[in-house]
């Protein structure tokens, strides 16, 4: 009874899909979330360049190594303290839909400005992969990121990608699968907890 607010997982039209592990794509506006969603699920969504088009939530299924995962493309959010309606929707998904894995997509060029949200996600204890997108633009600006060091400092998996061209996507899919499968076996071990 006391948990009424937290358990509002809707048994909607995709009731069956809910039992699949849930991957949520989150991040600031304009970092390539929709493109990544398209890359992972292969389902077409209108890919746009201006902030705030992902107002409606798009769901899709990702297939990998014979396993299936539900993927949700959440609206852009700057921080977990929402100002706009879209941000409230994104927060609701992160806090109430119980994602098994969050892909925090960031613009690699603006890493410093995007990391606070990553830190918030880590603080929330949600399993997170940091997706460093637009690596090509970073490289074109004559910069590079030490992915290994970033992985160590944040203690979460980090995946460099260029979603527009598909660079790094196979590795990311592998990583997602690995995270969710490991988590499942870890859950099985600690069952009854």
């Amino acid at each position: 009874m006391a948990q009424a607010m937290w358990i509002e997982r809707k048994q909607d039209e995709q009731g069956a899909a809910h039992r699949l592990p849930l991957v949520v794509i989150a991040g600031q506006p304009n970092v390539g979330k929709s493109v990544l969603f398209h890359r992972l699920t292969g389902r077409y969504v209108t890919v746009s360049n201006y902030p705030g088009t992902t107002v409606e939530i798009t769901r899709g299924i990702m297939h990998h190594n014979g396993r299936r995962f539900t993927v949700i493309d959440s609206p852009g959010l700057y921080s977990l303290s929402p100002i706009t309606e879209e941000e409230r929707v994104a927060r609701r998904i992160l806090l109430h839909e119980h994602p098994d894995l969050v892909l925090h997509v960031v613009d690699a060029k603006n890493l410093a400005r995007m990391l606070p949200l990553t830190l918030q996600l880590i603080e929330l204890g949600i399993p997170t992969i940091l997706v460093l997108n637009m690596m090509d633009e970073l490289e074109r600006a004559g910069l590079q990121i030490s992915v290994d060091m970033l992985r160590q400092q944040l203690a979460i998996p980090v995946a460099p990608t260029v979603c527009l061209t598909g660079r790094g996507i196979p590795e990311l899919k592998e990583l997602i699968d690995e995270q969710l499968t490991c988590r499942d076996s870890a859950m099985a071990l600690s069952a009854g907890d």
Binding site: A112, L115, L119, L143, M149, Q153
Partner: peptide
């Protein structure tokens, strides 16, 4: 959080060692 982010970013970011990229 922002200070941490700045710090982490400056730790992991560097000028590209690939000379062609810098030249470009």
């Amino acid at each position: 959080r922002q200070r941490w982010s700045q710090q982490i970013a400056s730790n992991v970011l560097s000028q590209s060692s690939d000379p062609s990229a810098t030249l470009r």
